[in-house]
Design a binder for these strands. Structure first.
Length: 233
DNA sequence: GCGACAG
DNA sequence: ATCTTGTCGC
């Protein structure tokens, strides 16, 4: 637990950042508290009207948040963005403390929240069950799903066939998501529910959001615009 | 003490 | 995430 005593500020100094002097134990307390509010229930894709995709890119010391809004047929409705200085370093397991601020600023621009938000990162497949998808999902009170390009927590068999999904389980053997090969000859993606959604619903929904690419459309488009806007500045 | 470690 | 062009393979 000694390492957990280290102040984020210490790491911040090393990373040339400028985060608050929070301690890991405090950050973990926040996560454990929010974790209690996570709800895992069935979510029907056919009931969704609008779906959002979120991504964040960086420009030196600034973060550029992007939220793309899609309709049920995955047509682009609008793109929201917000750019601001980041004051927190990237620390595995604490990504939300770095990216949630700018993401929330994007959502504030919406008059009506989406029926589902898909994140680039983990949902409950996290050491304390609160990846960025769950974290923001609880703060906004809307259904969310996490789609990561690599694993952070949990173990599973490697899918070998395209379209094959293997169960991702935590150390207690509980199902916390799926490892899914969405495209031929590509590394499988890690799918886990964020909030107001369960693992099976998350897998089912993500499958319907994939249109020929490795990543589901909401996240793929968010990343696309994230990079595009950044270069156009 | 060592390894793991989303974006 | 980001720094970066070409290139090997399906």
């Amino acid at each position: 637990m000694q390492v957990m005593k280290r102040k984020v500020a210490d790491i911040d100094r090393i990373t040339n950042g400028c985060s608050e002097a929070f301690e890991f134990s405090d950050l973990m307390d926040v996560q454990n508290k929010l974790r209690e509010k996570v709800e895992l229930n069935f979510l029907d894709f056919d009931e969704l009207e609008t779906i959002a995709g979120i991504d964040v890119s960086y420009i030196d010391e600034e973060a550029l948040g992007i939220v793309v809004l899609l309709d049920r047929e995955l047509n682009l409705i609008q793109v929201l963005s917000h750019r601001e200085r980041v004051n927190f370093p990237y620390i595995p397991g604490f990504l939300a403390f770095r990216e949630a601020p700018v993401i929330l600023k994007c959502f504030e621009q919406l008059e009506k929240l989406p029926d589902l938000a898909v994140f680039d990162g983990q949902g409950i497949a996290h050491p304390r069950g609160l990846g960025i998808a769950s974290h923001v999902g609880v703060l906004l009170g809307i259904p969310t799903i996490g789609v990561a390009k690599s694993r952070l927590h949990g173990y599973c068999e490697q899918p070998k066939q395209v379209g094959e999904a293997t169960v991702l389980r935590n150390e207690r053997g509980e199902k916390i998501g799926y490892c899914y090969m969405s495209k031929p000859k590509t590394k499988p993606i890690i799918i886990s529910p964020g909030h107001k959604c369960d693992a099976d619903s998350a897998l089912s929904i993500v499958k319907r959001l994939i249109k020929g690419y490795k990543l589901p459309e909401p996240v793929r488009l968010a990343h696309y615009y994230s990079q595009k806007l950044k270069s156009g500045i």
